[in-house]
């Protein structure tokens, strides 16, 4: 055990404090944006546990996000569950779907793993469309304001929403920091670096990968569940391949295998599109070019590059 308050913990607490202060310092236009970025960052942090730390490049994380989104959305809208229970249901749904996917997909590796996850996610997306009578398909459904309250907190209110998103973000980030600094987290990194050697040291790769994917699914499910009640809309777009690519993009941009990378990536990408939309409507090209530039010139992302240039302690 190193010092209780070491510099990486201070850095992460400082980021949370800065986001808390941002609510009072930034003009209100940015509040909704940053609340959304924080929820998407939770999704991307989960993606990073699988991709950045364990080396599992999934192209199907939209499935886990959508599992959380729909479990919570349908829970409060159609099955009349209390919001708190529906949120926990969304979290659990994300984890359960991820574990179920992992039990099959983790029997493969490399390119096959990407395609299997892509196919499962696509099957999930099409299933949502197929049961359009319940899910309302592409059009989606809006969650009534009455259902968007939790223990007296009105989640549709802009300020409450911001603080709820921040609370989720803070818990998710500190849990992730604890995970990657724990012995389990080191095993995950070892698996990414050299699976055979980890096996030789007595770690069962399948179990650890399944664990990583399951935790990753819990994060995605939590983000989906929070998205449903905070922003009040549930639709099939969130299950499409685009939402599997987004966390990959955020993680690559911010830095794979860094705790803060996904948030930084989400923040930069969101405002890149927001600012560029003032000049051009070509959003797709901005995303495409960002992916190309990253993979060609900066495969380690922003924080990955910083870590190489001196900040070695960055978790």
């Amino acid at each position: 055990m190193t010092r209780f308050l070491d510099r990486s913990l201070i850095l992460h607490l400082a980021v949370i404090a800065a986001l808390f202060a941002a609510q009072y310092l930034l003009p209100s236009y940015h509040h909704t944006n940053i609340a959304r970025i924080m929820v998407l960052a939770v999704f991307a942090m989960g993606y990073n546990i699988a991709f950045g730390y364990t080396g599992l490049l999934s192209l199907g994380h939209a499935l886990f996000f959508a599992a959380g989104l729909y479990a919570t959305g349908l829970g409060v809208e159609q099955w009349g569950l209390p919001t708190g229970i529906a949120l926990i249901g969304g979290l659990a749904a994300g984890g359960a779907v991820a574990v179920a996917t992992g039990l099959l997909a983790l029997r493969t590796g490399g390119v096959s793993f990407m395609i299997v996850t892509l196919m499962f996610a696509q099957a999930g997306y099409l299933t949502i469309l197929y049961f359009g009578a319940v899910t309302r398909g592409d059009e989606g459904f809006v969650i009534s304001t009455a259902a968007r309250s939790l223990g007296g907190l009105v989640l549709s209110d802009s300020t409450t929403r911001y603080f709820m998103a921040l609370a989720l973000f803070a818990v998710a980030m500190l849990a992730k920091l604890a995970l990657v600094r724990s012995p389990t987290g080191r095993v995950l990194v070892a698996l990414r670096e050299n699976e055979e050697r980890s096996r030789m040291l007595g770690f069962d790769p399948f179990r650890y990968k399944l664990l990583a994917l399951g935790i990753s699914g819990l994060y995605a499910g939590a983000a989906g569940a929070a998205y449903a009640v905070l922003f009040g809309y549930v639709g099939a777009t969130f299950a499409s391949i685009q939402y599997s690519i987004l966390p990959l993009l955020y993680v690559l941009l911010g830095g794979a295998g860094t705790v803060l990378g996904p948030f930084l990536g989400a923040l930069v990408m969101f405002y890149l599109i927001d600012i560029s939309s003032g000049y051009t409507t070509a959003h797709l090209a901005v995303v495409g070019l960002a992916l190309l530039i990253l993979v060609l010139f900066a495969p380690k992302g922003i924080l990955g590059a910083l870590r190489e240039r001196g900040l070695k302690w960055l978790p």
Binding site: L252, A282, G288, L289, A290, L291, L294
Partner: peptide
Amino acid sequence: VATIGLSYIFQQ
């Protein structure tokens, strides 16, 4: 990743 990027650019 690169061909995903390309596909967005072609769509745009």
